[in-house]
Design a protein around this nucleic acid. Structure first.
Lengths: 209, 209, 209, 209
DNA sequence: AATGAATGAGTTTTCATTCAT
DNA sequence: TATGAATGAAAACTCATTCAT
């Protein structure tokens, strides 16, 4: 049996007090990550900001990486909760509305905590492999592909795997870049959503007439 | 006058011997970055791998960041040399060929040194702002926008700034993701290029008929 | 608000164990300063001699300078405790006894730890400004001036500020030089004290008759 | 036979060009000592400021200490040339004028290059033992003692060695402190000289009447 | 003689982690 | 369980000095 990786929390923190400690630690880690970046996020500083002794920190997390992993996990959960809901809802929608909703939720998801998202996106590959942003993209891709398959007849594309890759990657990139590096574009988010929707539809749908 | 940023090299290597030292340092930095990542790239390790004393390292570069900046610079130069050439050549091509070439060169550029590219893309923000990947993307965007403007009459899109953003961001993301995270897609690179080309064209061109 | 100077200790040692650590560090610094001089006093050596890890050293003092400042502080406190007491006591004494006591305490003060005193006197300027030997001299000067003012009627000197400067500077210099560079003079310390006393009195007092 | 100490210059620099190099080196050392202090005076910086290659520096001086020693030496020579002249001239003067001239020359000597004097006084004991400021004081003491002996009959003091020590030490300290730490006193240097003269005379001379 | 590239021992300092209380 | 003092490996960086050219 595989040994528990060192990025897993040490214990489940059943009692209320422990729960509060754990929350404070993760929250403090996120704040420091945002404020100072990964390299400056020392465990002592995290414990300090969490108002917890360094000893206690190590009672709940076996390493700095484990803490960062917990932050990633929390952030990812928040994003995926939203994305999953929406990508499930669109199952019944016609393509145009479906794509529009998908684009909108991508932007929305990136706006949940953009500063944290940026740090995680930029500095995180170091921590585990499966918890990073890539994993999210893969799930989004899979969900979107499911939708495309259900609408296969209405599409002009044939390789649905490839099409889902193209769409999911582009939507993610547009949302990511707009939210993190081109905030001015979000002043008129509707326009951006419209443009991206037309972009995707021009690819997926057969030409009219 | 602004203080010299600590990411600039310290002195020019004039003699042949010192030129070799500097080259060895940059090369060693790139190798270690690829092999071990930014955090493990200590100046001592770099000097060691370059077969140069730590003192020599600091004679040419004032910090680890300066070395990384030099690597980024070298890599960016390589990429942009290629990209610039191609995006200039396409000026005379019809849209379809132009887009196909643009997609192809994006992939090609990411394949120059994918492992290095990945490290740089993921860990750059710490070093200067102007030499990171964003700057590249902006230049690609500007070049592509110039092309679109020269073909304005043949396009269905009206906001060319927005359109260039959408295209450049997507092309870059597709190339980036395919090269770095989905190498299996490159087994049939032609197919990918074709798909992406159709994708972009479906957006830019008015529907046929 | 002014930034905390780097010569202040980092945190107060509260528990008994840490108090011992801090003491050991200051003591070790003093010893090395005496034995090897400022330049050879590396933090590693200090930690080593204190029997403390280098990490602990930096938990309490942010730099070598801070440690030296602590040594200076401790030494100055010892000296001034003695000097202040005596210069307060002499208030009620007639001039001759007062001067004799002042001279004696100056020598005494320099003998508290002459070798340390010498190093500090010679190498202090680098550390803070306010804790160096000058500050001490100024306090001695002020105290002595106070005494002169209370005896103004019995003196032949008129500019008491100048007179205090002359006396305090000379007494300090005689004590300093004798203790640090002419130890043979201290074989008959009484004679030196007598001579210096006559020296000062010849200046302060009106000629007899 | 004793090996040449490492604080002696390496060769005598006979030719004019060598002479210029040596001068530039000593001058640069003095400047950096004044501007940055002993610790910041690296040989590379010195060579740089002297406009000489580091290799050449080591052709003339075997170590950093040797350079500093040369600076001390040059400074001391300047001071002693002046002091010696004056203390020789006073041989024929009556006590009062003699003391006044001695005090005046002490101040004058300290004003030759006060900033350099301060650095040397404060940070130099590290270099050789005989070249430091103490050596100067000793010579001043000896000269003054010679004068006292020639006037033995006119003095009330009996232990001339002790008296010379007391006078020389005090005069030096007053000049030193006034010049380096109480420049405001030099606004009326005459007053200071007068006061110090009365001070010394009150001690040396028998009471009038 | 002069140059300046190269050296590397030695210094300061940080920070993840352990463990006695 | 919590605490925080203590640890020490490892990192960045300096600078006196050497030596090939």
């Amino acid at each position: 049996m595989a040994r528990k990786p060192l990025t897993n929390p040490r214990k489940e923190a059943s009692q209320a007090r422990s729960r509060a400690t754990v929350d404070a630690l993760v929250e403090a880690t996120a704040r420091i990550l945002v404020r100072d970046g990964f390299d400056k996020a020392s465990t002592n500083r995290i414990a300090d900001m969490a108002g917890v002794s360094i000893g206690s920190l190590y009672q709940y997390y076996p390493s700095k990486e484990a803490l960062v992993a917990a932050v990633i996990d929390r952030h990812n959960r928040q994003i995926m909760r939203r994305v999953r809901t929406v990508l499930t809802e669109i199952a019944s929608l016609p393509i145009e509305s479906a794509v529009r909703r998908a684009v909108a939720v991508a932007i929305e998801a990136h706006r949940i905590d953009p500063r944290l998202h940026r740090v995680l996106a930029e500095q995180i590959p170091r921590v585990g492999q499966l918890q990073n942003v890539e994993a999210l993209n893969r799930e989004g891709y899979a969900l979107f592909r499911g939708y495309l398959e259900s609408r296969r007849g209405e599409l002009r594309v044939t390789d649905l795997g490839l099409a889902a890759f193209v769409c999911a990657t582009s939507i993610e990139a547009l949302a990511h870049t707009a939210v993190l590096y081109h905030t001015e574009m979000l002043l008129d988010a509707e326009a951006l959503i419209e443009e991206a929707t037309r972009f995707i539809l021009g690819y997926l749908q057969p030409p009219p007439g």
